[in-house]
Amino acid sequence: MSLTVLHLSDPHLDGGPERTARLRAALDLLPDSRRPDAVLVTGDVADTGDPVAYARFREAMEGRGPWLAVPGNHDDPARFGTPPVATLDLDGLRIIGLDVTVRGEDHGELRPETAGEASAAAEGAAVTVLAFHQPPITLGHGYIDPMGLRNPDALAALIERIGTVAAVLCGHAHTAGAGTFAGVPVRLAPGIVSALGTDPDHRPLTDGGLPPGAALHRFDGAAVTTTFHYAR
């Protein structure tokens, strides 16, 4: 099994043309000869939950092949239209998308019922990937780190229970990132709407003038290799 997943995050669509164009630029990073097997978007699809923004998102995803999106803290779960646990099956790889958002808060939480559904969803899969918005690892950034997954122990227990998790894929930080959690690779996709600055005390915290980016994950069985790409 050799599969590629184009991983995007944080387009923060507002219904206007500028942010939609940034999303499309990230989606078009790869030439047709390197078309991914699937596209994954890990949250904050819309900036304020505007239904027009979700309509623009669905339009941008048309013809992109299999894709899965999970909600972020800026999304409206009712308008997002994805259940708390959603799956995308590829050839030997199952991506399990989780809603870990907490209504009205920036941090994430893996709820017991979501973990139970995710464990059931992983049954029978040779290789699984868990995808959600807030990362379970800290990045050493004083602004972002308090907004991560607040109960990482619950995620560690889920990873152990499933037993076939090859990677955890997240967003939220608006920066590319890589780490390890519970013995599993963690990868963060760059932000589409903006890029996080390195100084947590500097305002503005993000730069919307930098190009949008994406992560490309290649899965060879349970082994994952990640490269990061940016639009020109």
Rank of each mutant, 00 (worst) to 15 (best):
E18V: 14
H202P: 05
V41T: 09
G213F: 08
A176N: 07
G108W: 04
E62T: 15
S119Y: 13
T101A: 06
P83A: 11
A120V: 15
F57M: 08
L155D: 00
P190Q: 08
E109G: 07
M1Q: 10
G163F: 07
R56Y: 00
N73L: 08
L6M: 10
G140Q: 08
A156F: 12
L13C: 05
P31Q: 11
Y54N: 01
T138E: 15
G191M: 02
A46Y: 02
P136F: 08
A214R: 05
V168G: 03
V102N: 03
G221S: 11
G72C: 11
P112Y: 10
R150P: 04
R218H: 11
N73F: 07
A21Q: 11
G72V: 10
D32G: 15
H12Q: 06
G124H: 08
P71K: 12
A131N: 03
P11A: 08
G209C: 02
D207T: 10
P211R: 11
H74G: 02
A55M: 10
L93F: 08
G142F: 07
H229P: 06
A26H: 00
D32C: 11
P200N: 09
A156D: 13
A182P: 07
L8D: 03
G213Q: 08
R64A: 06
L205Y: 10
G63I: 10
P136Y: 08
A25H: 03
F132D: 01
P51H: 12
D207W: 09
T138F: 04
D153M: 13
R64F: 09
R103H: 13
L130H: 08
G197W: 05
R111S: 04
D201G: 14
N151Y: 09
G97I: 05
E113G: 03
S33A: 15
L188N: 05
P135A: 11
D32L: 13
P77Q: 10
L158V: 11
G43K: 00
D91N: 13
A86K: 06
D106L: 13
V70K: 01
T114E: 02
G140V: 10
D153S: 15
E160K: 14
V129N: 02
L169M: 14
V193T: 11
I162M: 00
T138G: 13
D91S: 14
G43S: 07
A53N: 00
A176D: 08
T48A: 14
A46V: 06
R79N: 04
L205H: 12
A60K: 09
F181K: 01
V5Y: 04
D201T: 13
T164R: 13
W67Y: 14
Y230M: 06
P152I: 05
D89A: 14
D75M: 08
Q134A: 13
A231G: 01
A214Y: 06
L8H: 01
G183F: 11
G148S: 02
V184W: 01
L13V: 00
G16M: 10
H12T: 02
A173I: 12
D220F: 12
F181H: 11
P146R: 11
T198G: 00
T180P: 03
L40H: 00
I96Y: 03
L210W: 04
A156E: 15
T20E: 15
L13H: 04
G116I: 10
G221E: 10
A157V: 12
A215S: 14
L188R: 00
L93A: 07
A38S: 09
D14R: 13
L98C: 05
V52T: 14
L158D: 02
